[in-house]
């Protein structure tokens, strides 16, 4: 007799467990779907998303800091020196370094952002763009023209959260 009761109890408990689960799925079923049908609809990545590195060519002085600090050795830079007229009247001609080649191999890149941080002349920026997959690995090597095109997609830096220290220069 006692055995019977416990069997009944167990059955009731099982049924309750099952129904509890079904209630959750039913409730979810009635809610709108959260999935985004990607190629047709798109979610905007956050401003800070590290999607692709953009290059502002005129800021680059070929100092090689980014290529040196890169842990993956995926930045290749070449340049040459040129004489430019002086900024002021009567001054001496300046020698400037001009960028010939600036390649980032995104097949190697780990998206760590060290190059962007070490750049002393603000030539590299993060852009949240992410749609640059290629069918061949060789095409993931972006040259300076391609990297320059990304510059248009670089967002304006967003304000910081309450309590953040207001930064001075740098």
């Amino acid at each position: 007799m006692g055995n019977n009761v416990s069997k009944k109890d167990a059955f009731a408990k099982h049924l309750k467990g099952m129904l509890g689960g079904l209630r959750v799925t039913l409730r979810t079923m009635l809610k709108p779907a959260v999935t985004v049908q990607y190629p047709h609809e798109q979610e905007a990545p956050p401003t800070r998303a590290r999607g692709v590195i953009a290059l502002l060519e005129e800021n680059c002085t070929v100092c090689m800091l980014c290529a040196r600090q890169c842990p993956d050795w995926c930045i290749y830079i070449e340049g040459h020196k040129e004489k430019r007229p002086a900024r002021r009247e009567g001054g001496k001609d300046r020698t400037v370094s001009v960028l010939d080649r600036f390649d980032i191999d995104y097949a190697l890149c780990m998206y760590c952002g060290i190059c962007v941080e070490v750049c002393p002349f603000d030539a590299l920026h993060w852009s949240p763009e992410f749609e640059y997959s290629e069918s061949s690995i060789a095409h993931l090597l972006h040259d300076k023209d391609k990297l320059g095109e990304w510059e248009a997609t670089v967002p304006v830096a967003e304000p910081l959260e309450i309590g953040a220290e207001v930064k001075g220069k740098k």
Partner: peptide, 18 residues
């Protein structure tokens, strides 16, 4: 892969509204 920690602190503060 956040890579948000730096020796001595963090790369940046939180964004507005976080």
């Amino acid at each position: 892969h956040p890579n948000f920690n730096r020796i001595g602190g963090l790369k940046d503060d939180l964004p507005w509204g976080w």
